[in-house]
């Protein structure tokens, strides 16, 4: 089969855009494994002449982040300590909310859902001041627990949206049949709904994981040096003005911060895209 000129142009365009999207990743990767001198001499686009893993080691365990020369490792762990409980709690609550809002409807439930949904969209600047004070009041200031709490509070809106839209398409007759069979509220949820919620649970977990891992605003506002998440630490590393800028270390650190979410994206891209698409409220 010979390609017509139009097809050749089409593939050329597609390839060009592939280059555009991959270029920054390429820059980060190659420059994270070359010595600083190769970068500063204008060789950012070149493959390394002298390959080295030193920048990675440096970024992981030696670099000066904020006040201490700990590398990014403790902050990487902080992020996991924050993400795992936050995602778990928000997902469970979202599933229960979605179940109630679709299968046990009552007067005014759509309005309540609309009010919850608005929480997905508010600019978080509007809650920064009172949240800072509330965390102090709850003795959670500057702790990972405080960040977990904040992310749960503002993650519920999303998880509820996902599960509500998914359960809306789940046949209500099944729930009614189970009721006639004698199953109660929680039994129906546990035995009928949850075993059929695999796909949406994956979508929800991936979405929350990506969002919470990538969050910067809450991390920057509500954490101290002991509880900062990865994004905040990476920014501190890159913005710190002391000494020579170690670009290769910055790039290595940036890839480290990107790895968990990139990994999720590559392993479960299908679900990731579905999560993005659910931006449409009705789904």
């Amino acid at each position: 089969m010979t390609l017509r000129p139009a097809r050749i142009l089409l593939y050329a365009l597609l390839a060009l855009f592939c280059v555009y999207y991959l270029l920054p990743l390429y820059v980060m990767l190659v420059n994270s494994v070359k010595p600083l001198s190769e970068i500063t001499s204008g060789g950012m686009m070149n493959l390394p002449q002298a390959w080295t893993l030193a920048p990675w080691k440096n970024a992981w365990s030696e670099a000066q982040v904020g006040v201490a020369a700990t590398g990014l490792k403790p902050y990487f762990l902080n992020s996991f300590a924050m993400v795992i409980p936050a995602v778990t709690i928000a997902t469970v609550l979202g599933a229960l909310n979605g179940y109630v809002l679709t299968k046990w409807r009552f007067r005014g439930d759509t309005i309540l859902f609309g009010l919850m949904l608005f929480g997905c969209f508010i600019p978080f600047q509007i809650v920064l001041i009172p949240m800072a004070r509330s965390l102090g009041f709850l003795n959670l200031s500057g702790t990972v627990g405080g960040l977990v709490f904040v992310h749960v509070v503002y993650g519920i809106s999303f998880s509820t949206l996902y599960f509500r839209n998914y359960y809306a398409a789940f046949p209500t007759e099944l729930v009614r049949a189970a009721e006639i069979d004698g199953a109660g509220f929680f039994t129906i949820f546990w035995r009928i709904l949850l075993p059929n919620s695999g796909p949406i649970a994956v979508v929800c977990v991936i979405w929350l994981f990506t969002n919470i891992w990538n969050d910067f605003l809450f991390g920057a506002s509500f954490s101290d040096f002991s509880s900062q998440p990865m994004t905040v630490a990476l920014n501190n590393l890159v913005q710190s003005s002391t000494g020579e800028k170690e670009y290769n270390v910055h790039f290595a650190g940036a890839i480290m911060a990107a790895l968990p979410t990139l990994f999720v994206y590559i392993v479960a891209g299908r679900f990731f895209v579905r999560g993005l698409m659910s931006g449409s409220v009705k789904g």
């Binding site: 592939c18 891992w213 790039f251 940036a254």
Partner: peptide, 24 residues
């Protein structure tokens, strides 16, 4: 494959994106 390439930046933190483009 092409879709995956076009969409992957969405999985990154804006901080990571910022660092990459800042130096680029």
């Amino acid at each position: 494959f092409i879709r995956t390439v076009y969409l992957y930046p969405m999985a990154l933190s804006f901080i990571v994106t910022g660092v990459a483009w800042k130096w680029f």
